[in-house]
Amino acid sequence: MNVSETEQMAEDDTAPSSRAGASSPLSAAGVTGDAHITIRGLSKSFGDAVIYDNFDLDIPRGRFVSVFGPNGCGKSTLINLIAGLIEPDAGTIRFDGKRLRDTNFGYVFQNYREALFPWMRSIDNIRYPLKFRNISRVEQKERVERLVERLGVTIDLNKYPYQMSGGQQQLVSIMRSLVIEPEVLFLDEPFSALDYEMTLFMRDQLQALFMDTKTTMVFVSHDLEEAVYLADDVMLLSRGPAEVADYVNVGIPRPRSAATISDDEFVRVKAHCLEVFQKLVRGT
């Protein structure tokens, strides 16, 4: 990995944008012209299964990108690779040219029950990542208070996670990833374990949060409606090795609401994504 990394770095220095433009014309950099995360030559296999092979992608700054695609196409693998949970076989990933370890990022897991620490009160769960950031205890407390106020959270954060509902736990989990004021937030199917009512509520919470912070968000979803509803851009991935099959801009103004779901533009975008998706599933 080291060899290819230095090679890739050299390439990055000379012509990152032209390379991206050449190999993935649908990349979002073309849409906004401001890449936040640049991925070059990413390769990853699990045994014989090649998930990514020399994959290039630019993820734009300050946009909400939904990642959608058939089962097993590597949606979650992509954000796990970017967030450093999985080591790539080859390739580089840079955040404004920085490495991951110099980047402030948040990650929200699908399984909040297994991601939160049940031995800590929710408030301490939220405060936990601040412990590794050279921040005084007083400031830690203030940061959490500020976050609670900004999100208008009314749940009792002195409870333990297991004393809360699923939605509340995932909200705590999201707060924990936000308290560090991340540049990028990764969300891996965060609402898929919640009931429908809670999902609708959490979508709007997340949207409000995005509008408020303009944090770059990469959102993996297996629910097309949700992916389109939340996204500025929907990235459709094909199956192994993964390619960006389509990169769809969702131009519907925010805040979006329940009415958006029956909006003409929403229906059109969703139908288009579904068509691409079905082609991918059929493998044609």
């Binding site: 936990y128 590794f132 560090i180």
Partner: peptide, 14 residues
């Protein structure tokens, strides 16, 4: 739980 270890890791825990 793997997820919990990963969670600590992504939060920057050494």
């Amino acid at each position: 739980r793997k997820t919990r270890l990963q969670a600590a890791k992504v939060m920057g825990a050494p």
